[in-house]
């Protein structure tokens, strides 16, 4: 009796497990879409390594504000008063904080007080993508460090890995807080949900339709932020780097940032 009941229970257990696995496999089986397929928009901007060159002297307060506002409006970025919960795609900080270790006591006042425009560097060797356990963040072939909010589990490992503070976490739901009583400004772009990481996506959705990133577009007439392909020797960014001395943030870490600052 003892024996047979035991083996019976084992059998039942194993068969349930087997059936469960079978039906799970069944569910995972993809449906045949019959469609002719997917492709990029023919208008999409094509590049091998997108980069931004920021001309610091051309970025006065007004231009900086315009660039930031354009980004935040187009991506429905909430503005939280509490620094600890802030969401930052593009923001400013002083030289001392943007380039720590490079400051000295007798830094020109003009440089010391000037706001530096900071954003995701879309590094060529991005540590955030290296650490992500679900490939929710990864690097595209054109160099854009993308973020898939559908897949992010909110472990925040990428935030620990990013040496530039470019990643923000949705500690709370923007819909029930910042956008509770006001409409998200861009009805054509999603907001985020609580518990996922977000950051600058180099306007991947705009590049796909052939437009420049919103920040670049917003200050186009000043040429303070220039966007282009570093692998293209005739691109505007290459020309600028050829003519001017530029610096990058924390190059010693080997992440190889693709945002350059002409100082």
């Amino acid at each position: 009796m003892e024996r047979s009941r035991r083996s019976f229970l084992k059998l039942v257990g194993i068969s349930t497990l087997g059936l469960g696995t079978l039906s799970a496999v069944d569910l995972l089986d993809k449906v045949d879409l019959r469609a002719q397929g997917f492709g990029p928009d023919p208008k999409a901007l094509q590049g091998e390594r997108w980069a931004l060159v920021v001309d610091v002297e051309k970025l006065d307060e007004e231009t900086t504000r315009k660039a930031i506002e354009a980004c935040h409006l187009v991506h429905n970025v909430p503005h939280y008063e509490d620094y600890e919960e802030e969401i930052k795609w593009i923001w400013t900080d002083t030289y001392e904080h943007a380039f720590p270790g490079q400051e000295y006591d007798y830094l020109a006042e003009e440089v010391e007080e000037r706001p530096f425009l900071l954003l995701c560097n879309h590094c060529s060797n991005p540590p955030c993508c290296r650490v992500c356990p679900t490939q929710a963040t990864w690097q595209r072939e054109d160099g854009v460090v993308m973020m898939d909010q559908h897949r992010c589990i909110g472990c925040r490992y990428c935030m620990a890995a990013c040496p530039f503070g470019a990643r923000s976490f949705n500690w709370k739901d923007p819909r029930t807080t910042y956008f509770k009583d006001k409409e998200p400004p861009n009805p054509r772009y999603p907001t985020r949900t609580k518990g996922v990481v977000e950051k600058c996506n180099l306007c991947a959705e705009r590049l796909a339709e052939g437009s420049m990133p919103a920040c670049v577009e917003a200050v186009k007439d000043t040429k303070a932020i220039v966007f282009g392909d570093l692998e293209d020797p005739h691109s505007e960014v290459r020309e600028l780097l050829h003519e001017h001395f530029a610096i990058r943030r924390k190059p010693e870490l080997g992440t190889s940032p693709n945002v350059y600052y002409i100082v």
Partner: peptide
């Protein structure tokens, strides 16, 4: 589900139907 993966992950934002 396919749409979102193709658009977000593959950058293919045009779907050519049957």
């Amino acid at each position: 589900d396919d749409w979102r993966n193709e658009a977000v992950r593959e950058g293919k934002r045009t779907y050519v139907a049957t």
